[in-house]
């Protein structure tokens, strides 16, 4: 019986070989293949990545910032939620997951119309006089810097032979704040889209903490701050790691968010890959090499996560 049943998976094994394993192998082969008309094995594709060091750096920087902000918001939120009553928690969890069932393009699009130059936020700022206030502050800073330039800095420059000058050309005639098509907007988009990925694993670890450990710590005289620092936080680290991975990986590989909120002029890694396959710079060899790097990043993240224990099931729930 058992052996007969194991043949049930034969079709899927063939399917996996064709559509999961073969494509990955193909990416590896392409990554080490010279761009035609040249032929044969080469490492050129990887060496060429040096040209895109800026893109790598920007991608990592933005993804790390977004992950960090998600952690700053997600950890306290999970902790506070775990303190609430059970029905509150249930509703809160549904509310956190609900936006994720809306397509992420729509969620990103929502921010486009909010951040636009004549969008919702700017109109609100204008109505509240915040933009005028900004102009006023900038004007004040300009005159302050001008007087500093003439006074202290002129004196210093004369003494030290330097040419220090403070900028005096801050805009004082703004009618809107430029928010859309900036890197800040891209980070905001990442945080907004992937925050639930941070909250859910952390929350599910905190909620499963062993009560007796906390009681033991309190009985032994630890203050609540100390219980948090010495017991709760260390024990919730697996959730944190899994949350960090689940936010970092999609953030570092996104291309739609950077196109929609970043304007598509400052490329991220995802944009770079997309360009090599569907864009004008058609070069699947280079694209495969970058994809291979991405795969290595993911494997490293997974390895680190698994070393520190659980958190795997969470990915399935989503």
């Amino acid at each position: 019986m058992r052996n007969k049943l194991s043949w049930f998976s034969a079709p899927y094994v063939v399917w996996m070989a064709l559509f999961t394993v073969a494509p990955v192998i193909l990416v590896v082969i392409y990554a080490f293949t010279a761009v035609p008309p040249a032929e044969g094995f080469t490492l050129d594709n990887f060496l060429r990545m040096k040209e895109f060091a800026v893109v790598f750096a920007r991608s990592f920087r933005l993804a790390l910032i977004a992950t960090f902000i998600c952690l700053l918001i997600g950890y306290p939120l999970s902790y506070f939620l775990a303190k609430e009553g059970p029905s509150f928690q249930k509703i809160a969890m549904v509310l956190i997951m609900l936006p994720m069932w809306m397509n992420f393009l729509l969620r990103t699009y929502a921010w486009m119309s909010i951040l636009e130059n004549n969008g919702f936020l700017n109109r609100m700022f204008a109505a509240l006089g915040i933009i005028d206030l900004g102009n006023l502050i900038n004007g004040g800073l300009n005159s302050l810097c001008a007087s500093l330039n003439e006074g202290v800095l002129a004196w210093l420059n004369a003494r030290l032979g330097t040419a220090l000058l403070l900028s005096t050309d801050r805009a004082t005639d703004m009618t809107y704040f430029r928010m859309l098509y900036t890197q800040g907007a891209v980070v905001l988009g990442m945080v907004y889209n992937y925050l639930p990925f941070m909250i859910l694993p952390i929350y599910s670890v905190i909620i499963k903490l062993d009560n007796s450990l906390l009681e033991a710590a309190r009985d032994l005289g630890a203050s609540s701050a100390r219980v948090f620092r010495k017991v709760i936080f260390p024990l919730s680290l697996p959730g944190v790691l899994s949350g960090v991975t689940m936010v970092f990986v999609p953030s570092v590989s996104t291309f739609a968010i950077s196109k929609m909120l970043g304007g598509g002029t400052k490329l991220l890694l995802g944009d770079l890959i997309e360009l090599q396959f569907l864009g004008g710079a058609y070069n699947p060899y280079l694209g495969s090499a970058i994809s291979l790097v991405m795969m290595v990043i993911v494997v490293v993240c997974m390895y680190v996560m698994n070393r520190f224990g659980e958190g795997e099931e969470q990915a399935v729930v989503l």
Binding site: I73, P76, Y79, F80, K83, A110, S113, L214, S224, I232
Partner: peptide, 29 residues
């Protein structure tokens, strides 16, 4: 699971702000 005290005003406020952040764009849309 008992994390000790019930959440205070600050943590309730924080939670509310995060939910506003999550839902305001969708409601505007």
């Amino acid at each position: 699971m008992n994390l000790g005290s019930r959440p205070g005003l600050f943590s309730r406020l924080f939670t509310a702000l995060v939910f506003i952040f999550l839902y305001a764009p969708i409601f505007l849309l």
